[in-house]
Amino acid sequence: MGGHPRLQRRSGGHRDGSAAGVDFAALSMRREPSPVSDLRSLAGAVKLLWRLRPDVLVYATPKASLLGSIAGRIARVPRVVYELWGLRLETAQGVARRVFAALESTTSRLSTLVIANSVSLADRARSLGVTGGRRVIVLGAGSSHGVDSEFFAPGVEAAALTPETARRLAESDRLTVGFIGRIHPDKGIDTLIDALRILSGRGRKVQLLLVGGEDGAVLDDELGQLRDVVPVHIEGFADDVRGALSAMDLLVLPSRREGFPNVVLEAAAMEIPAVVSDATGCRDSVVHGVTGRIARTGDATSLANEIDVLLEDDELRTKTGRAARENAVRHFSQRDIWALHSRAWRGDIDAVGPTD
Results as ranks from 00 to 15, higher is better:
H145Y: 09
G212A: 07
G2D: 07
V252S: 07
V286K: 14
Q334E: 11
R31K: 11
V309D: 04
L219M: 15
K63C: 07
D313G: 01
I294P: 01
E235D: 05
R174T: 04
L67Y: 09
A75Q: 10
L303V: 01
L196R: 13
A238M: 15
A339E: 08
L39K: 08
S302Q: 07
A267M: 09
V119L: 15
G243S: 04
S333R: 13
I307M: 15
S342V: 08
I198R: 15
R109V: 13
P62K: 10
G72E: 05
R167V: 05
H14F: 09
K205T: 07
D55G: 08
E214W: 10
A351F: 05
R343Q: 00
D314R: 15
D240L: 05
S108I: 06
R182H: 11
S118C: 12
T297H: 06
L169Q: 07
A295G: 00
D278A: 01
G2H: 09
G94H: 02
A269N: 02
S302N: 07
H145F: 02
E235F: 00
D148N: 15
E83M: 11
A25W: 03
R257D: 00
R15K: 08
G236S: 03
V22L: 14
T191V: 11
F100S: 02
R343D: 01
A295R: 02
A141G: 09
R73F: 02
L209C: 10
E271V: 01
F100H: 14
G142E: 09
I272P: 10
G236V: 02
D350W: 06
A244Q: 06
G155Q: 14
L161W: 09
T320V: 12
L27D: 03
L303G: 00
V99W: 13
T297N: 04
S172M: 03
L209I: 11
W338D: 05
P154N: 12
L139I: 07
T131A: 02
V232G: 03
L121V: 06
R30V: 10
V119R: 15
F179K: 13
A268E: 04
R317C: 10
N117Y: 06
T191P: 03
V276Y: 01
P354L: 05
D284L: 10
L196V: 00
E312F: 05
D249V: 06
T291F: 04
H4R: 12
G347Q: 12
A75T: 03
R346K: 12
V119N: 13
L110T: 09
D123C: 00
L196Y: 01
L103C: 06
S105Y: 07
R317F: 04
S246M: 04
G188H: 12
G2C: 05
G12T: 06
G224S: 08
M248V: 04
G201F: 08
A116P: 05
D123Y: 01
E326W: 09
V177K: 08
Y82G: 01
V232S: 00
S11Y: 03
P78C: 04
I115V: 14
L251Q: 06
R30Y: 11
R197V: 00
H233D: 05
D228S: 12
Q8I: 14
L223G: 02
M1Y: 02
G292F: 03
V95T: 10
V22I: 14
I137C: 12
L161S: 03
T112I: 09
R283A: 13
A20N: 03
D356I: 10
